[in-house]
Write a protein that binds this DNA or RNA. Structure first.
Lengths: 185, 185
DNA sequence: CTTGCATATGCATATACTTGCATATAGTAT
DNA sequence: ATACTATATGCAAGTATATGCATATGCAAG
């Protein structure tokens, strides 16, 4: 039920449409919680039924109408109650590591190619997180409490990407000892 | 569909029962892929229907019968085909970071308590991974290809836990600047 | 000039995963 | 004595997530 709560948290900032929530998920909370827009629309319907949010339709002539959702008193209470209940441990699904478990029984060049792709992926994300960090959080010590939470999310993103990037290099060295290290970009 | 493939990989080693698969998931692949035993039993039924595995019932007098599954030729082919298809990017669900996004709008001591719990969790896991590493992988350079894959899984586990542990300390310093750092244990 | 993207929502279906229960027994803690 | 854990499997029902399609339009890039 945590998607609903992630939406509640996002609505703390301001009322938003499902579409906006989806975009914001990709750009912010998306580092550690992904949700498709379908999932968000469905969840919003459920949340409205539960009285956690209320919606207002804003007519638009050229585009489809916007349905703006805002937090209700009950939604706020649900959020507080959720914060009080202990978190689940993080859930990770690392398909690549499952494949690596088959190392020795499956085609090694394929795994090397996958590792290279993953390396590039983490490099991209790291660059993206670091640019957001430089732009929005130049001095972490002086942030308002609100921005501190966001900073910490970004910070973990950066640390994790660096770690995984380094691991990719180790893995490539171990899996394809002969190959030239990839330093592209 | 990746749980099925994770099971196929595990069955490469040797035929196993659902129960054994569940235990092995916790101990090995479980670092980066969790599955309950219900999920595994259900998946095994589906895989048997698809012809990826075949089962043999071993009668036991004192305990319930064991149903031992082994890889079939078709399962082996499915595994190879899956290895060839590019991985999904890793899926992460970090409830704690969603809560931190609400920092400034919700009770801070609760978040501090959560961070402390998480710190302890990562410390435990790190200790566990490091003990496995010391016992089973003392010299990573000399491992067989098969063990290299498992080593790399464990290695990423250790690196990730260290990273997250360090991040917990940063987060605690930033969220509860007055508090004494927790050095218990 | 056509392909694709951004805006904006939604239904229907399918798969994945969780939770609670049920069975059966033997051994080990408290 | 009683409760819990380990062994071993499974059904049923519910929740969560993913996938594919449908609608409608304007704008920008190739």
């Amino acid at each position: 039920m945590a998607l609903a709560h992630a939406i509640l948290v996002s609505l703390l900032d301001r009322p938003q449409t499902g579409y906006e929530l989806g975009k914001r998920f990709d750009q912010t909370v998306g580092y550690f919680w992904k949700a498709s827009h379908q999932q968000i629309y469905q969840e919003l319907h459920k949340m409205a039924k539960a009285g956690w949010v209320q919606s207002e339709t804003v007519a638009q002539s050229d585009k489809p109408n916007r349905i703006v959702y805002e937090l209700t008193e009950r939604g706020r209470e649900a959020l507080d109650a959720w914060v009080e209940t202990p978190c689940d441990p993080p859930s990770v699904k690392e398909e690549l590591l499952v494949k690596l478990f088959a190392l020795g029984d499956v085609d090694t060049p394929t795994l090397v190619a996958e590792l290279r792709r993953r390396r590039a992926y983490h490099q991209d994300r790291l660059a993206w997180y670091e640019s957001v960090m430089a732009e929005h959080y130049p001095e972490p010590g002086k942030l308002s409490p609100r921005k501190r939470g966001r900073y910490l999310g970004l910070r973990l993103g950066i640390l994790s990407e660096r770690t995984t990037l380094g691991w990719c290099d180790e893995a490539l060295a171990l899996v394809a000892p002969g190959a030239r290290p990839s330093r592209r970009k």
